[in-house]
């Protein structure tokens, strides 16, 4: 369970409010509202095509939602309307980081460079927009030292310290997934959005991932929002589960409660032909 002194029931980090996303005639998300609490791991689950990744794309500024509002709240009380921020401010100002279903590392750069790129803005400012960096201002050297230390901390945490200078593309699949999480964390986010982090991992790697995610919540005090198909991950580590089906929220609550919800079972496993109408009426289709 979440660290109690981090969480109070009113402390919401992300509010998704009446979010609707249409692509032409297709309604990918239909009037979705949910909240993610600070210091918790919130899981967004649902069958294929339920609109989970679309929600992520709206949160991280890839899509402009047709309707609705996505608000991120920092501990100092400042609010960011994510759907209005330009691309790079989602990370730099609102401090939201994300990973993708498919791996999107900078494969030609070294592992260390991948982690330094994630700290670009701080370094850019410290380097006086490059000129200061060229003449080696002490201020820039210090900032770069700190950036490397932070990168080392994350390399240690994901177990890639000894490969820091290898090209990122040379890593095996599981290590690339961990590096993506490390890179996202190097941006210093308050909310980390992970799109199917356990996809393609073997059971042992999947367990390691669980530990990494729990430690990000406990030690690095970062809230997580994750999309996951692997139910063992969802049930073991999430504090709160939101279930989507056809772009509509069908359940929202504690993992145990969601697991036994008939609508969720119907959405995942399908139902007998006779029950379709009854279930659809319940779901509100």
């Amino acid at each position: 369970m979440a660290n109690p002194d981090l969480v109070s029931s009113t402390d919401t980090i992300l509010t998704v409010d009446h979010l609707t996303m249409r692509f032409g005639g297709l309604i990918a998300i239909n009037d979705l509202s949910f909240k993610a609490r600070r210091g918790e791991i919130t899981a967004l689950i649902g069958p294929n095509g339920a609109g989970k990744t679309t929600v992520f794309n709206c949160i991280t500024g890839f899509y402009k939602p047709t309707e609705g509002m996505i608000t991120l709240t920092h501990t100092d009380g400042s609010h960011y309307l994510l759907e209005r921020l330009p691309g790079h401010s989602v990370s730099w100002k609102a401090k939201v980081a994300r990973t993708f279903q498919n791996i999107r590392l900078f494969s030609g750069m070294t592992i260390l460079e991948n982690l330094l790129v994630a700290q670009h803005n701080r370094l850019m400012i410290a380097s006086g927009f490059t000129i200061g960096g060229l003449i080696g201002l002490p201020n820039f050297r210090r900032a770069e030292g700190e950036a490397v230390d932070k990168a080392k901390y994350w390399l240690e945490k994901v177990g890639l310290t000894d490969r820091a200078d290898d090209p990122a593309g040379d890593l095996p699949y599981g290590a690339q997934r961990r590096l993506e999480i490390a890179r996202a964390m190097c941006t210093g986010p308050v909310l980390l959005c992970l799109d199917e982090p356990a996809a393609g991992l073997n059971p042992r790697e999947s367990l390691e991932l669980n530990e990494l995610l729990l430690s990000i919540r406990e030690i690095d005090k970062t809230s997580l929002l994750l999309i996951e198909h692997d139910m063992s991950v969802v049930m073991q580590i999430s504090d709160h589960v939101v279930v989507l089906d056809y772009g509509t929220k069908i359940a929202d609550g504690l993992p145990e409660a969601v697991r036994n919800d008939p609508k969720v079972i119907a959405a995942y496993l399908g139902v007998e032909d006779d029950d379709v109408e009854k279930i659809e009426a319940q779901v509100g289709l």
């Binding site: 991280t60 691309g87 990370s91 980081a97 494969s107 030609g108 330094l116 790129v117 803005n121």
Partner: peptide
């Protein structure tokens, strides 16, 4: 330099670079 790293990052994946806070 950070600028050069950002340039190489944009070269490979501009959207990902933006998500890491690069303008």
């Amino acid at each position: 330099t950070p600028l050069g790293r950002a340039q190489r990052a944009c070269e490979q994946d501009r959207k990902m670079a933006a998500l890491l806070g690069i303008n």
